[in-house]
Simulated scan of single mutants.
Amino acid sequence: MTMNVLSSPSHSNCGHWYVRHGICLTCKKKPSHAESLPFDYLFSGLRLSQEAVSYTKRLTTLISLHTHKKLYLVLDLDHTLVHSVKVSKLSEAEKYLIEGEQPQGLKLYESRIVKVRPFVKDFLKEANKLFNMYVYTKGDFLYGKKIVKLIDPNKTYFEDRVITRRESPDHNKTLDHVLADERGIVIVDDTVAVWPHHMRNLLNITKYFYFKKDGINKVSYAERKRDESRSNGALANLLKYLKVIHSEFFSCEVKEELDTKDVRLLIKGPFKPYGC
């Protein structure tokens, strides 16, 4: 395996690659934040220079592809893995959810009620064999952490890889905050428009609505006491497609091809797989 990556900076010629709480970890100086990106989701107060980000992305991707045969999967949270609403927004026909026996996958979080999408548990278990996974939500830090804990309580699948509005305050999402080369990343999101610079990585999934949606005169899953299919729902069909993508990516017989192979050529995104 070839790894033509850059060397990390020396103390005498410091590029301030790794900064925490404003102090460079190499030279102990206080550099400007102008040329660095926040990675608080990994360690509080951590910022990496552009050079450090590029170096780390390439290195982690090569190790993952060659050693573990894993690609990277960036998953949206709301309407992709869960649906949550304020308890006060429940319709009259949905209030049984907080008064009696609750259906599987329903959780209360402060003033919100959260429904985990059917098949999430199996999806994460199987996808974890093929991908290093991130969650990327435009929710705030505490919300993102709490909701992810509901679906991954032991940090088995995501560890601390939960990117929130704290690191990414803009309306759009970006792979700049994901420590992997874009050529090895698959994105799954119910909203295409938030990924204007990474459409080729994107798989679009149908929005998951369990509770009644404001302004929509349609009976919700909760009101009907039904839910999306586990065996033939969006996540089950998505998993089938991801397995195909993974198999095709690693089908090459020459290991050196993994140094340049690009999953975007297989996805041809933005693309909505059948049944998703």
Rank of each mutant, 00 (worst) to 15 (best):
M1R: 08
M3V: 13
L6C: 10
S7C: 09
P9S: 03
H11V: 11
H11A: 11
G15L: 13
W17L: 12
Y18G: 00
V19K: 14
I23L: 07
K29C: 06
P38C: 05
P38K: 09
F39E: 09
F43T: 01
S44G: 01
R47T: 05
E51P: 09
S54L: 10
T56W: 15
L59C: 02
T61R: 11
T61C: 07
L65Y: 08
L65W: 11
L71V: 05
L71P: 07
L81I: 12
H83C: 00
H83D: 07
V85S: 02
K86Y: 13
L90Q: 13
L90H: 04
S91E: 11
E92Y: 14
K95A: 01
L97N: 09
E101S: 08
Q102T: 15
L106T: 03
K107G: 01
L108F: 12
I113C: 02
V116K: 04
P118G: 04
P118Y: 14
F119G: 01
K121G: 05
K125G: 05
K125I: 14
A127H: 05
N128T: 07
K129Y: 02
L130M: 12
N132E: 06
T137I: 07
G139S: 10
G139F: 07
F141G: 01
L142A: 03
Y143P: 01
Y143G: 03
Y143L: 11
P153S: 14
T156H: 08
F158N: 08
E159M: 12
D160A: 02
R161Y: 13
V162D: 02
E167P: 10
S168V: 07
D170S: 10
N172F: 11
N172Q: 06
K173W: 15
K173I: 06
V178M: 11
L179K: 13
E182W: 00
E182T: 04
D190A: 02
T191L: 11
V192G: 04
H198Q: 08
R200M: 04
R200Y: 00
N201K: 06
F209P: 01
Y210E: 01
F211E: 04
G215F: 15
V219M: 06
S220W: 15
S220R: 14
E223D: 12
R226Y: 12
S229C: 09
S229A: 03
S229D: 15
R230G: 00
S231F: 04
G233T: 13
A234G: 05
A234N: 04
K243R: 10
I245F: 08
I245E: 05
S247P: 00
F250T: 01
F250A: 04
S251I: 13
V254W: 13
K261Y: 15
V263D: 03
R264H: 06
R264F: 09
L265H: 06
L266T: 11
L266M: 08
L266S: 02
K268C: 06
F271M: 00
F271T: 00
G275M: 00
